[in-house]
Amino acid sequence: MTSVVVTPPALEPVTVAEMRNQLRLTGAQEEDLLSGFIQAARQQIERETRRALIRQGWRLYLEAWPMGRIVSLPIAPVLSVDEITVYDLDGNGHVLDPSDYTLDRSSDPARIRIGLGAGVPSANLLGAEIDFSAGYGDNAQDVPAPLRQAIRLLAAHWFENREAGTDLAMTSLPHGLDRLMSVNRVLQL
């Protein structure tokens, strides 16, 4: 099971202006650098928590249906299932009708239940692709405050400790970062 981002988020959950305030910077000389730190921090927080922060499109690749035809999605929160394509042994794709599956958002991570007989028979299944949208929403304000604060802390840490070889940069992370992420981490089953 492999998953990839197919549509990245349209914006970051933290603005450059918010980072300038966090760092108490008055000038705009290093906006590109701050923007890069914000993006990298968001990506790190997303990897650590297994959460998408701003709406983004994902694709999950499966070689076969899991037991019971229940697919746990690797990223949370899931906003929608956009399309499920199953491939037969000849490599022909068949898009499942939305009535052939249900999205269960009550579990964390969300699950998709594939109906029996949906698509091609399991013996003839070469693989499947599940396209879904994940994230808290389209706006920075949709992202929980602790995760936005974690991005600011991590980006500020990287801004202040730019030398990769220093002992401080190698051994420390901002105080409280692990706590901000831990309550939002999706458990891996």
Rank of each mutant, 00 (worst) to 15 (best):
N124Q: 15
L180D: 08
I70P: 02
G119T: 07
E83Y: 08
L33T: 10
D82I: 00
A17G: 00
N21V: 04
L73G: 01
A10P: 03
N21G: 06
D131G: 10
R55D: 02
N92L: 07
L23T: 05
L79W: 11
Q141E: 14
A140V: 07
R152G: 02
T15I: 09
A17K: 02
R69A: 03
R59H: 02
D32Q: 05
L33D: 07
L147V: 07
D131W: 13
R42C: 08
D88W: 01
G127S: 12
R179P: 06
I38M: 01
R113Q: 05
Q39I: 02
V4D: 15
H157S: 02
E160K: 10
L116P: 00
A156L: 09
T102V: 15
Q188W: 12
W158C: 06
G127A: 12
L89K: 05
E48D: 04
G27P: 02
I114D: 08
T15F: 12
A28M: 06
L23C: 07
A123N: 14
A64T: 11
I130E: 08
P66C: 04
T2Q: 14
T2H: 13
R152Q: 12
A128L: 13
P144N: 04
A134N: 10
I75S: 00
P66F: 03
R55H: 01
I114Q: 03
N124S: 15
A17L: 01
V143K: 11
N184Y: 15
Q44E: 11
L89W: 05
A17Q: 05
Y101A: 12
R24G: 01
V78G: 00
V4C: 14
G68A: 00
R148E: 04
N124R: 14
P13E: 07
L147G: 02
H175N: 11
R51L: 01
L187R: 14
R42P: 01
R152S: 08
R51S: 03
S122T: 14
P9K: 14
L189W: 11
Q56M: 07
P98G: 10
D104L: 10
L23A: 04
F132C: 06
V86F: 05
S106I: 07
L189C: 13
D97E: 05
P174D: 09
H175W: 11
V16N: 03
Q188K: 14
V186M: 15
L168Q: 08
L33P: 02
S106H: 12
T7V: 14
